[in-house]
């Protein structure tokens, strides 16, 4: 097995509950995401949140992103103290409740401002990132080159294909400087070739920084599991209204994380069956 250690908690969901009036949507959601350290690698975290339609995945996604407040409970994140950030300084961390803007959010339809060109949208995001002060343009161009959108910088969102929109959304949120990247159904409606590219892209992002944490909300279990290190399953327990996390699977322990051809492994198939049984 690849050597690794799990250290500090980067994100913790504590007793999350969401109700609309008397209707309970989510209850008792508790989980944490820890920093994974692999010697010689900048290994980020990739966590999947899977569940059937109508299980409250989108609501949980919105709560995690800080766009929606839960009825009770909280999301605590660990972040570098802004004042301590300077080249060569020792990072000092603090814990606090998540706020809108803390997470990089990539919506299912990769929404972008229709009145901004790709270049303008990316620069807007880069200017929000204090660490990029003075080098916004250069960093933006680096990402554009890396993610193959350099030729479409002058275009408007309505002139982009779905795959291009997705890449632009990801770069925008990366430029913003968020360590957490939340992706809502990133594999939905993609053909096989594009799907492979998206998987590759997400793996590339997860390897860009040790603290980079991808949280993928998806109902495409096979693809989500193939790129994740941990899977949380959202489901229902008998006799209780609303959804909760019914299971979590550590894919690293099973030797299924960080493997290119993981889909060919028998244990991968078994894990998928196990997840399906929980849904």
């Amino acid at each position: 097995m690849t050597p690794y250690t799990k250290t500090e908690v980067l994100l913790q969901a504590k007793d999350l509950q969401l109700s609309y009036g008397n209707k309970c949507i989510l209850h008792d959601i508790n989980f944490s995401i820890r920093d994974i350290i692999r010697p010689g690698l900048q290994q980020g975290q990739v966590v999947s949140l899977v569940g059937r339609s109508g299980m409250g995945k989108t609501q949980l996604f919105r709560i995690l992103s800080g766009l929606q407040k839960p009825t009770s409970g909280s999301i605590i994140i660990r972040e570098r103290k802004p004042a301590e950030v300077s080249p060569g300084s020792i990072a000092v961390f603090q814990e606090r409740a998540v706020r809108p803007g803390d997470m990089g959010v990539i919506f299912q339809n990769y929404y972008q401002f229709g009145w901004r060109t790709v270049r303008q949208s990316l620069l807007l995001a880069a200017r929000r990132n204090k660490l990029l002060e003075g080098k916004e343009e250069d960093t933006m161009l680096q990402y554009a080159e890396q993610f193959d959108v350099i030729d479409i910088l002058h275009r408007y969102p309505s002139q982009l294909s779905g795959g291009q929109q997705q890449r632009v959304s990801i770069i925008q949120q990366l430029l913003k400087g968020a360590n957490f990247l939340l992706l809502d159904e990133p594999f939905s409606g993609l053909d096989v070739c594009v799907l492979d590219k998206v998987v590759e892209l997400l793996q590339q992002v997860s390897l860009s920084d040790e603290l980079k944490t991808l949280i993928i909300v998806s109902h495409d279990i096979a693809t989500a599991v193939a790129i994740s290190d941990t899977v949380f399953i959202l489901g229902r327990t008998k006799g209780v209204e609303g959804s909760t996390l019914v299971r979590s699977i550590d894919l690293i322990e099973r030797g299924l994380a960080w493997q290119k051809d993981v889909r060919r492994e028998r244990e991968f198939e078994e894990t998928l069956e196990e997840i399906k049984a929980c849904l």
Partner: peptide, 29 residues
């Protein structure tokens, strides 16, 4: 659409900045 304001929120815009970006600039046409 609510997504226009939400994109502003995810980018860390304040409410006044969201008003400027989405309504003043975004709806100038």
């Amino acid at each position: 659409p609510a997504q226009e304001y939400e994109l502003c929120q995810t980018l860390g815009y304040s409410r006044w900045e969201s008003l400027y970006e989405v309504i003043v600039i975004g709806k100038a046409d």
